[in-house]
Amino acid sequence: MSAHIVYDSAPLGSVVRYSDGIPKPPERFRKKVAAWGRRNSVGRLIRKEPPRERATYTSPACFTLHEGDFGQAGTIVVSVRRTYTVDSELRFEIVERPAIGMVRILQDVGDSPELLHLAKDREAAERWLASNRYSRAFLEEVTADEVGADVVEGRTAA
């Protein structure tokens, strides 16, 4: 599916796989494998931004995937996030959607909220929020109405 469909139909917290359709090179070609990995991976959808129109430029709608955090001893040193515009040539696939009862911890940033964490229930979300202080964070539960609308409209995970 296209990036535009992911932007329109995937809820925050969904796991999205993306690919350029090129087969993975043999492991002995380390640089080629690394380059291939930058265009073929999986991440959690954490942000959707609407198109912007300014006096000097126009940017299309885009979304951001969180691919992972790297560090040690509980300290995150690098957080890998990739942002794609809706006109990206890559192919995307929604692998998993948030389940009913899960709770999104969101933060208002600019025009759209950003997913900070996806908890299995409200109690886990409140524990996470108590140990990770964010000034503009709020909770949003995944409801049966949201999941039901996805099923009715044909937006089930691939």
Rank of each mutant, 00 (worst) to 15 (best):
A149H: 11
I46M: 06
S135Q: 14
A55K: 12
H66L: 09
V15D: 06
D150K: 10
L139V: 01
L115G: 03
Y7K: 01
L12D: 02
G101W: 01
E27W: 08
E67L: 15
R47Y: 06
L129Y: 08
S88D: 02
A119H: 07
Y57I: 09
D111L: 13
L118P: 01
A35F: 03
I46A: 00
S112H: 08
M102P: 05
S59C: 09
E146Q: 09
N132S: 07
T156H: 11
A144G: 04
M102A: 13
T143S: 00
D150S: 08
A73E: 15
S41R: 07
V103D: 02
W36G: 02
L12G: 03
R47F: 04
R155C: 08
V42E: 11
V109N: 08
T56S: 14
R91I: 10
W128C: 09
A10N: 01
A124P: 11
R81I: 10
R97M: 06
R44D: 02
R38Y: 10
E53K: 15
A130K: 15
K48A: 03
I22S: 02
E89H: 12
V15R: 06
H4V: 10
V77I: 09
A3I: 02
K120I: 15
A10P: 05
G37N: 15
F92R: 04
R47N: 10
D20M: 02
V95T: 00
S135G: 09
V147I: 12
V77H: 11
R104N: 05
H117L: 09
T64K: 06
D20L: 00
A130D: 14
A137W: 00
D145L: 13
F92S: 00
D8A: 14
A149W: 12
K120Y: 10
L118W: 02
A35V: 06
D87G: 01
A144I: 07
L139P: 00
S2H: 09
L90V: 00
A55I: 12
V77W: 05
T85M: 01
G101Y: 04
R30F: 12
F63G: 01
L139R: 00
E89M: 10
D121Y: 05
L90C: 00
V33W: 02
V142K: 04
R44E: 05
D111S: 13
A125P: 05
G154K: 13
V15K: 04
D87F: 06
L90K: 06
V6T: 03
S59A: 14
S79C: 15
A149N: 14
T85V: 05
T83E: 05
V142S: 02
L90R: 01
P11K: 05
R38M: 11
S9L: 10
D20N: 05
W128R: 08
R17D: 12
A55Q: 14
S131M: 08
Y18G: 04
K31N: 12
Q72V: 12
M1A: 14
W36C: 01
R28Y: 11
A137L: 02
A35W: 03
V80F: 10
V95N: 01
G110S: 08
R104W: 06
R38A: 14
V78K: 13
L139Y: 03
N40Y: 04
S79V: 14
H117M: 08
R104I: 00
V33H: 08
T75G: 09
S19C: 01
L129E: 01
I22D: 07
V151I: 15
S59V: 11
E153D: 14
I5Y: 13
R47W: 05
G110R: 12
R155E: 11
A130F: 08
F29V: 06
R30V: 13
